[in-house]
């Protein structure tokens, strides 16, 4: 129960960061936090097994999800790097303020 709530809180926090932060690397950190929240919810909503263990199916899904997150993060960072190399900026704003 507690971890379902924590998952929802993390999801909201991550979502906030993804929209409110302007630096793309900060956005990516926030997206990672949001997906951790989703993972927590996915595993904690599954009812426990008869022997008290944790349902292996959501665990396997989350393991896959964690690896996909790394792949997405790495790709996002590569995009950010290219943005920096081509335009010399680290935000997605239409017009960069003088820095």
């Amino acid at each position: 129960m507690m971890f379902i709530l924590l998952g929802a809180v993390l999801f909201a926090l991550g979502l906030y960061g993804a929209f409110a932060r302007r630096n793309v690397v900060l956005k990516l950190v926030a997206v990672n936090i949001a997906s951790s929240g989703v993972f927590l919810v996915v595993v904690s909503v599954a009812p426990p097994l008869p022997d008290g263990g944790t349902d292996p199916l959501p665990q396997a899904l989350v393991l896959t999800g964690i690896v996909i997150s790394v792949a997405v993060t790495a790709f996002g960072l590569a995009l950010a790097r290219r943005l920096g190399a081509d335009e010399g900026r680290a935000t997605l704003d239409d017009e960069e303020e003088t820095s």
Binding site: I4, G7, A8, V9, F11, A12, L13, L15, V41, V45
Partner: peptide, 9 residues
Amino acid sequence: AGGLLAMVA
């Protein structure tokens, strides 16, 4: 959004 997720879950 977070509240809805918690409620549904």
